[in-house]
Design a protein around this nucleic acid. Sequence first.
DNA 1: TTCCGTACTAAGAATCATTCTTACTTAGTA
DNA 2: TACTAAGTAAGAATGATTCTTAGTACGGAA
Lengths: 141, 141
Amino acid sequence: MDIEDIKNKISSGGLKFTHQRMVIYEAVSQTHSHPTAEWVYEQVKENNPSISLGTVYKTLDTFVNAKIIQKFIDTNGVMRFDAVLEAHSHLYDKETNEIRDYHNHQLETLIKEFFEKNKIKDFEVEDIEVVLKGHNKQKIN
Amino acid sequence: MDIEDIKNKISSGGLKFTHQRMVIYEAVSQTHSHPTAEWVYEQVKENNPSISLGTVYKTLDTFVNAKIIQKFIDTNGVMRFDAVLEAHSHLYDKETNEIRDYHNHQLETLIKEFFEKNKIKDFEVEDIEVVLKGHNKQKIN
DNA sequence: TTCCGTACTAAGAATCATTCTTACTTAGTA
DNA sequence: TACTAAGTAAGAATGATTCTTAGTACGGAA
Ligand SMILES: [Mn+2]
Ligand SMILES: [Mn+2]
Ligand SMILES: [Zn+2]
Ligand SMILES: [Zn+2]
């Protein structure tokens, strides 16, 4: 994803393009680690020492509202951000707190169809999320 | 659930029976609202004005470790407690932040079987949780 | 070009849920 | 009774997030 792509992504959310938004979106989209605001801040600060943590929080929140990234709360209550917008599940490693993606259309379809057939009384489902907790095998090292 | 049942429940976790543990377990088990520590504190304080919030936190944590209640983090990052130990899903109302139970064996089986057939590479699944976000219809004011 | 209004940003204070520390109390045991 | 370990109250400390305030950048009107 080059500068033009990022520029387009930010504009597509109806947002003005600024340097801070550029580098923050870049940081989030370049990793699959579901970063915290703090991580994004540390990352971005290397080349932009004058950026503030508050700006990182505010910008990430702006991105979430504009629906160009998504956020969720991890098992420790910390906010995590994800530039991947398509439906997918997350694998939580109980030991390391790493969060991996798990993308399986068959599972998505299975669950979606289940809830189409089995409507819940008095509740309208908008999002379905499967959270898988366990631990990674075969860690490198 | 009477005093004897609660006493047995606490003992079954290998814990000493105390008045504080009694009233805290009672408060958690009497509601289906997935209470916060603060809620439990307010509840218990009515008849036990000298109890401290720290004790409520510590006792709830003790219960979780003893596996006589469970806890999870809600979409706002706040701890929620649940005396229901059997596998079940939660319905999050995006507007009111209420959390309702959704218990459906068919869904549980469906998902469990899916992951038995479709092992994830390099990851051992220990817990599976389905989180449903949306909103309650027909609220009684 | 200059001026103005609006959106954006930096810095740090404030908030809130949770954890930690410390000293006191209780219950059980020798 | 005296000793010991576990439990509790009170409040300080922590850490992630939000809020406040003042300064900055930028596009459009004059
Ligand atoms: Mn993801
Ligand atoms: Mn529940
Ligand atoms: Zn998919
Ligand atoms: Zn069941």
